[in-house]
Design a protein around this nucleic acid. Structure first.
Lengths: 345, 345
DNA sequence: CCGGAGTTTGACAAGGCTGTCATCAAGCGG
DNA sequence: CCGCTTGATGACAGCCTTGTCAAACTCCGG
């Protein structure tokens, strides 16, 4: 009573299937892994047996033997950030397609032993590859641990390029340029800008794009109109407060992400300013929040789900040649909603 | 050159550690698993070796040999739902504490082969246990697949109780009762209610609580004031539209979740109604959105992160005796913010 | 100093799968 | 009909750990 077709509790294993199909376990393995050199007839017999026994390969045995994992990791700094849902959504869809599972882990930028924890994670040989999200995508500790470990990883929206490293991004500078130009096109001259978190790669790029657009339109940059934020709602409130109490306040505010833009909206309300009549507001990311505030936010859609899907694809593919493209650049899209309009005369 | 302290690329394995410490692999295993009957001296030697070689047990080998997994799964219907972040946050924190990893998977209520997919997931013996979130926590297909598979699972906020099944919940009926009573206490008599998605367990409970509070205050239930929603922002807009165009419109609206409450806010704006002067609005869940809209929402805080943490704990503990508590009931909390006030005279 | 109980340790077989290499059958040119 | 190549299949080791069981050692009372 060791093993066998005995339909007891235990799930069938590869030996059961082999016995049932009248072939060797290796042949079953071949069929399951789509290896070449199996007669269609044999293949069918195996497949039937698989069906009949509801066989599913044990993922641990598989991983152990083949020294590869079918689990892809995503690491976040802050699981409450707006883009998390989008990333998971995109990654999950692609994982399913490619036969992987998705494992989530959180690492806080500041925590001690960060590098050590990252190493532990990969040393367990748990992961096939890792998706690194901002701001972790620029964390020296995480990055060097990852490099050292030899695990493949792809960085989402990193600030600094790294040689020989997989990346997925949009052109943040161009996107911010476009958004700023949209506001200028509407007739705004005094456009406030709320800078994103210094640690996040995209933050600086977006600021550059803003500046470039002003320059392009011949508008002189007013440093008073550029205030530091940290991508959080709270920081957006503070930044908006400063901008709106300026002697010569801006007629439009472009916040580096939607959370801060939502904060601007609410601060403007508090000051008795109507949006967009008295103040245009635009955000960035097109997260859920953009559509849920009133008025709906004009923002820049970052195809975050596609970016994550792309990341999974890159990891799923074999390491590829030296010269394979290391970087995927996706398209952004301006989403004009109700929060921006021409300034009052 | 088979194996050994050869500090090549390959990570150290248990044999290396054993050799380095001058003990058998079994002893190393004992130390690592905190099994009894190891001399402190031996333990220290092993621990030193572990340190020296940066050894981390291979999780796949471990799982294969011990027939247990160190991965807990969470399954969602919709990864963009508001509570997802909270659940992951809480679950992740506890997982880390208990030495587990968290794997995310999405199953859509309607998809075909749902049960089959669930079975596949557990047949791979990938998971130690599964956390089932609404509305999956009441999906017959998912539930029966899970029961059949023998994998332990805990349902978050399920509607119907099931025998011999782990559950974590709040008292939704009581919470809705409290919220409704708060509005009544403010002086409201005509209180609209937006019912949640019929598939979600909590939806019905909350509706019951609303009705009970009215009855308790001697207010007759007006069916026109109760409209069906689906927990989505969009459905909230539609429901609000219907309530606000009523001949005798309510002075307060209690939406079954924050997304719908935010939609009410925005619809009210559109109708030129001020909140809370002309219309009080309250939500449920206290998700991010509640603090980000203007005015900030009065809502009922559901300790979602704690619930998830609790779920992980339940799974982490050994199956426990027959009579161990199967259900954890956590406390809710009314959060009074700016969106509710006494009705205009 | 002996027998027995309890503690500490180790040898070795799983566990389910893939990789390597050998084997066997079929196909083909001469 | 022979020898060779190619395609299809199988036997078996190995991946790294834990579980089982036996061996060795310690401690104790008699």
């Amino acid at each position: 009573m060791k093993r066998g077709s005995m339909n007891g509790q235990k799930p069938a294993n590869i030996h059961d299937v082999a016995a049932h199909a009248g072939v060797s376990i290796k042949t079953v393995s071949r069929v399951l892994n789509r290896e070449p050199n199996v007669t269609p007839k044999t293949r069918d017999r195996v497949l039937d047996a698989v069906q009949a026994l509801s066989y599913r390969p044990n993922i641990f045995a598989r991983s152990l033997a083949s020294e590869r994992s079918f689990i892809i990791g995503v690491i976040f700094d802050n699981p409450s950030a707006g883009y998390v849902a989008g990333i998971q959504y995109g990654a999950l869809a692609k994982c399913r397609e490619e036969g992987y599972h998705l494992l989530v882990e959180v690492f806080s930028e500041g925590e001690k032993d960060l590098g050590e924890r990252v190493l532990t994670l990969v040393r367990e040989s748990l992961l096939h590859g890792i998706i690194v999200t901002p701001p972790l995508s620029d964390s020296p500790e995480v990055l060097s641990a990852l490099k050292e470990s030899g695990t493949r990883f792809v960085r989402i929206a990193p600030e600094r390029a790294m040689p020989d490293t997989l990346e997925v991004r949009i052109d943040d500078a161009k996107a911010a340029f476009d958004m700023t130009s949209h506001l200028i096109g509407l007739g705004h001259r005094r456009i406030g800008f709320i800078i994103g978190h210094p640690g996040h790669g995209a933050a600086n790029q977006r600021f550059m794009g803003y500046k470039a657009a002003l320059e392009n339109a011949g508008i002189k940059l007013d440093p008073k109109l550029c205030v530091q934020g940290y991508f959080s709602y709270q920081s957006g409130m503070e930044a908006a407060e400063r901008l709106l109490t300026l002697k010569n306040r801006p007629t439009a505010i472009f916040a580096s992400n939607d959370d801060m833009a939502a904060a601007v909206l609410s601060t403007a309300h508090k000051h008795g300013l109507r949006t967009p009549e008295d103040l245009s507001v635009s955000g960035f990311d097109d997260t859920l929040i953009a559509q849920v505030v009133w008025p709906k936010l004009t923002t820049c859609r970052q195809p975050i789900a596609e970016m994550a899907a792309q990341a999974v694809s890159m990891l799923a593919q074999p390491p590829a040649d030296k010269d394979a493209p290391k970087e995927a650049l996706l398209e952004h899209e301006l989403v004009i909603r109700e929060s921006t309009a021409a300034p009052n005369a």
